[in-house]
């Protein structure tokens, strides 16, 4: 079974977010970067588990510059067999998806996995876009994925107020979320092996972006907290009604 896992590098969860050039560009200066959590903990780890079950290969794919290579090596240390980096900075989800789809088109992957969304641009769109570009079925936000055989995926997907169990034949695209696998910390052997695993840099296809960001803005800080005496807790309800007007 050939599995492709889309891996993105994002600012660390705790990173301070700032913008430059009149708030048109993210300021990456001094920011620590990590592998996007849902790509790593769920999509990649589950892909490696499925490979152990059915045999085959797990390839990661990343769209971005050489500054992504530390993150890509981490994926190899966790257990991916090889990695592809498409050497361009896409401006939107479509740019990322179209580059990945162009590469994947000739590779006959059985399964393409993404995280449910990146924690930077929160687009939750790359998986669905790849599916449409390659005319494949798409399961969005799967919290469980089983493959009883190499040709059938059975996934649980969260919908509002419930969980659907869905089945589809490979090839297909699935976006992954919490529940699909447990976080794996790479061990020393994995880290040593990762240095010798192939990382192929691919030239980008000519793709036009669809949407663009005009300007970023940080939310106004909340005014400082209004503390209520615990002995007059009922006052809170009055304030929520009269002042905040939410009840």
């Amino acid at each position: 079974m050939k599995i492709l896992v889309c891996v993105c590098q994002t600012p660390d969860t705790a990173a301070k977010i700032d913008f430059v050039d009149n708030n048109t560009q993210f300021n990456a200066n001094g920011v620590t970067f990590i592998m996007n959590p849902t790509d790593e903990w769920y999509a990649l780890v589950r892909a490696i588990e499925l490979k152990k079950q059915h045999g085959g290969t797990v390839t990661t794919i990343t769209v971005g510059g050489a500054e992504n290579e530390q993150t890509i090596r981490k994926g190899l240390a966790i257990g991916a067999d090889d990695a592809v980096r498409i050497d361009t900075n896409a401006a939107d989800s479509y740019g990322v998806a179209a580059q990945i789809a162009e590469y994947a088109r000739s590779q006959n992957y059985d399964l393409i996995l993404t995280g449910k969304e990146t924690i930077d641009y929160n687009g939750s769109s790359v998986g669905g876009m790849i599916a449409e570009l390659l005319d494949l079925p798409y399961l969005s936000g799967a919290s469980h994925l089983d493959m009883p055989d190499a040709n059938t995926a059975i996934a649980k997907c969260e919908i509002e107020g419930g969980i659907e169990t869905l089945s589809a034949a490979t090839p297909l695209v699935i976006s992954s979320q919490k529940g699909m696998a447990e976080q794996v910390i790479p061990n020393m052997q994995g880290i040593m092996l990762s240095r010798r695993k192939p990382l192929t840099v691919v030239a980008p296809a000519a793709i036009n972006d669809l949407a663009s960001v005009k300007v970023f803005e940080k939310p106004a800080p909340r005014s400082s907290v209004k503390l209520i005496d615990p002995d007059n807790a009922a006052d809170l309800i009055r304030l929520l009604h009269e002042e905040a007007k939410v009840i």
Partner: peptide, 17 residues
């Protein structure tokens, strides 16, 4: 979330998700 990205590709339409 499942439909909008597909529709964006199909219609070649920019999407704000």
């Amino acid at each position: 979330k499942a439909i909008a990205p597909r529709l964006s590709v199909r219609l070649k339409a920019p999407l704000i998700a």
